[in-house]
Design a protein around this nucleic acid. Structure first.
Lengths: 195, 195
DNA sequence: GTCTATATCCAGATAGAC
DNA sequence: GTCTATCTGGATATAGAC
């Protein structure tokens, strides 16, 4: 692992790139995900807008990176939740709660990942692939809880997405819908047995 | 009811205003709800942008009118669904299906009413009041189906919103989630009895 | 009522000097 | 690598002539 000058330079580049993405998250928090501006972003990291183009291809590439990072984080969060197959209700409840927590932790991240809040942007194929991978992990875990039928999985995603959406839209800092996670888990599993 | 010249003039004004709103829906369908442009809108009704200001206060007022109209339409749609108290499962299923149909019928309308797809706009108090009225009617109907507890109502809104969101995001022209409406109704009512 | 012209502001992206 | 200057294109809204 020789430290050639090229290595060092590319490490610096990577680090600056990370700073840019971090600043983008901060600005998205301040101005909304759709309000992200390259001018502001540049200033935030001590540059002018044109200099950003040394580090990122264009604005869409920034959104792509944020989107993929979001799904990596989600996969990690869900991975950390205990998955006790002997108590599927609690297991499902825990995952629903973790998902809602994840959404509440960053509204712009939620908007970027799950809504079409950025009018002219859609994830690239590469970024989209990351999201698919995360969904595959999720369905795998649901299978271990006895939720196998595609319809049952769709029901889980719908209920979870709905709880999160209502929570963020109507009670962003509270837990009015998050509290219903246990009921939701109970009823989904009961219905799964009937399907 | 005398037909004074003022009456006629204000009728014409109202009609032009309606034409503008209708054109706005059409353009929203074409360019997305957030992509609505006053220039294009004016051309669509045979004017230039400045002339619109004779009919509407500003762009936000157009969104307000569309938003309120959306909730009026939703109230109407739900009102037309049969509400057979003797068969609450079918009654709830019907309302869920009607809601999803309503959302699928116009994506921009859905985005305007239920998502924050228009970055710099929020409904005025007057427009918001219309939505509240519609929700009150909905909860009243749910009460007649035996869904009384606030938590149960929240569960219904979450599940319904979730089904619609997944349907529009992942299968906009199909019925992959709409199909689950009966299961959803069943499980909600079963859970309601347990709550 | 409708227009042209314009004010004001913003955006993403590129050319080319240093 | 970073900058200034600029291109290109958009937006909402207003002033004031007709």
């Amino acid at each position: 692992m020789a430290r050639t000058p090229t290595d060092i330079r590319s490490r610096r580049r990577e680090q600056t790139r990370s700073e840019i993405i971090a600043a983008a998250w901060w600005l998205a928090e301040r101005d909304g995900i759709a309000g992200l501006s390259l001018r502001d972003l540049a200033v935030e990291v001590g540059m002018r807008a044109p200099s950003l183009y040394t580090y990122v291809e264009n604005k869409a590439a920034i959104y792509d990176e944020m989107f993929a990072a979001g799904y990596h984080e989600l996969a990690e969060v869900l991975h950390e939740v205990e998955l006790d197959v002997g108590d599927p209700i609690s297991a499902l409840e825990g995952r629903i709660a973790a998902f809602i927590d994840f959404c509440q932790a960053s509204v712009p991240r939620y908007q970027l990942m799950f809504t079409r809040a950025v009018p002219e942007w859609r994830p690239s194929d590469a970024a989209y692939a990351v999201s698919v991978k995360t969904y595959e992990r999720m369905t795998h875990d649901l299978g271990r809880l006895g939720i196998d039928a595609p319809e049952a999985v769709d029901l889980v995603t719908a209920v979870t997405a709905g709880l999160a959406a209502q929570q963020l839209a109507n009670d962003p800092d509270g837990d009015r819908w998050r509290r219903l996670g246990r009921d939701a888990a109970e009823m989904i599993l009961a219905q799964t047995r009937r399907m």
